[in-house]
Design a protein around this nucleic acid. Structure first.
Lengths: 301, 301
DNA sequence: GTCACAAGTGAAAGATATTTTCGGTTCGGT
DNA sequence: ACCGAACCGAAAATATCTTTCACTTGTGAC
């Protein structure tokens, strides 16, 4: 049957070319041709059947099989498998090393790779820089809040809405405000035991700072999610959650990475709160899922 | 005959596990068993024949072949070769994966780590599974569109808004609709040269499918961003962009990773369009940045 | 509930690929 | 030139993969 996998991949002599050179002298002419084809283009040969390789090298199937045997495999099938592995290794050997910014003339495939890479980087940075003590405090405040107001405008406004949607799903009372006037109007209603959260990358967006200040002065617990821990918004924040500020390029505005970062923080808040209020959160989540089921057409499978 | 090697190794879809996760929902039970065996132990499966794998998974040869086809290979033989390659790659460099789900009693620091890791995973999967041809086509349509409508409800609605905001920033005309009635009303206005984009993870959200259908029938170029490439929404989509479907746990609803995935796709669309319309996009971006400057308070002291 | 129909599944037939067999060919030595 | 042994490839034999088809299971309609 088939040789043990360990033998094929783990073996000591990773280099097939070396084996070919060692054994070449003891090979017949036809076999050498096959061996050389295999050594010079593993990937290409891996795509061929015995017959194909035999034709390519101008030999016969039998010779191909004999060569495979000589190289230490039970048959051509296994040699082919090993070849596929070798080809893959060679492929992956070329380190990706994505350093360059996205350029105007980058092909679309590169854009995808680079964007994904940069967002991954942003996530790692954010996770590394997040103060878990502050996060824990914010979670506690949220879990016990009578109501929660979230402020954010522009791109941060969407993050505010995302947080709100999530909190609503686990049975908490939350509102997102992107209208600064309404936000202030509502902030006046807040008092001790309530929570206000401001989301702003720059930390100096007046429209968001103002309602947070009002909430702060009315005794609410205030949280700031910002990329600038030294910015004005932190003056009125009991807890500051720092998002990462990654370099931006012309084609990749800061808003993109700040959003990724903010969303991770928001997700952490959500999961933290869900943990603390598990008794009510779990059934609430299940219920909201159920409620949405009938909005979906039945799918083909 | 045998699939081109380039396809197997070099192709865009590097990660098999990602493909399995993306396609798992559209698989039948038996096929899922096969897919999982393959994803969890590529090396082991590479050593098995169709019959062997069928026995291992308690299914039949036919099912194994069907699964291989679904994963994008012409047959089992080619899947097996790819598997061998994958196994070899794993042999060489392996990163320690964080496997456990988030538990109710996880400390907050673990939550941060795990969430960041899972979102990174989601990004990698999405990038690996994105069809750059479809993406390029969608970008071209957007870049030349008279106007663009984007449909999304719930969590996807926020993504729709995000895309809209971005497109507006580079001078395109775009609208996001979360109200299904208004969406349909507006879709009627679309015609050839316009673009309609539907964002839905399940691909079966009627409120989003309906406006896309109308847009489609009125001759607009339609794009679907969905996690289910076989879902109803794709019927009316000229271009389908697939987001990744990662496993979800009780504390981490699917909405979380689908949002991450959708946002990456949206970012790719945006950057792609910005590239194509660079002449107008660059100054527009700069202008919108300028316009916002005065909304920011000067930093303290 | 139960009926009809579609989707899913595996046993087995059919098609391909691999391995083995075996007879012809080449080549060095005499 | 002749002999023998190693070499080689065509074709048979076997193993593996793919397709077909009938049976089962699940699902929606009535």
């Amino acid at each position: 049957m088939t040789q043990d996998v360990k033998e094929i991949f783990g073996g000591p002599g990773g280099s097939l070319a070396a084996k070919v050179r060692t054994l070449a002298p003891s090979m017949t002419r036809s076999m050498q041709r096959v061996a050389e084809a295999v050594a010079s283009d593993p990937a290409g040969c891996a795509a061929l059947t015995v017959t194909g390789l035999a034709e390519l090298t101008g030999t016969s199937e039998a010779t191909v099989v004999r060569t495979a045997r000589l190289l230490g495999y039970p048959g051509y099938r296994d040699l082919r498998l090993a070849l596929a592995g070798l080809a893959a290794q060679q492929q992956s050997g070329r380190a990706p090393a994505i350093t360059t910014d996205i350029a105007v003339d980058d092909p679309i495939a590169d854009v995808v790779t680079k964007l994904a890479y940069e967002e991954q980087q942003t996530l790692a940075d954010t996770a590394a820089g997040l103060d878990t003590v502050q996060l824990g405090a914010a979670v506690n405040a949220l879990a016990g809040a009578r109501r929660t107001d979230v402020y954010g405008v522009g791109a941060s406004g969407l993050v505010a809405q995302d947080l709100t949607q999530k909190l609503l799903r686990i049975g908490l009372i939350a509102h997102a405000h992107s209208d600064p006037h309404l936000a202030v109007t509502n902030a006046v209603q807040l008092r001790s035991g309530d929570v206000a959260i401001a989301i702003t990358h720059s930390g100096s967006t007046g429209d968001v700072i103002e309602p947070l200040r009002v909430a702060f002065e009315h005794g609410a617990t205030t949280v700031a999610i910002t990329g600038r821990p030294d910015s004005p918004v932190t003056q009125y924040a009991d807890h500051v959650l720092t998002t990462s500020t990654s370099r931006e390029s012309e084609l990749r505005p800061a808003a993109m990475s700040s959003r990724t970062s903010q969303l991770l923080v928001v997700d952490c808040l959500f999961v933290g709160v869900a943990q603390r209020t598990y008794e009510t959160a779990a059934p609430a989540l299940a219920a909201s899922y159920e409620a949405l089921a009938h909005r979906h057409r039945t799918s083909p499978r």
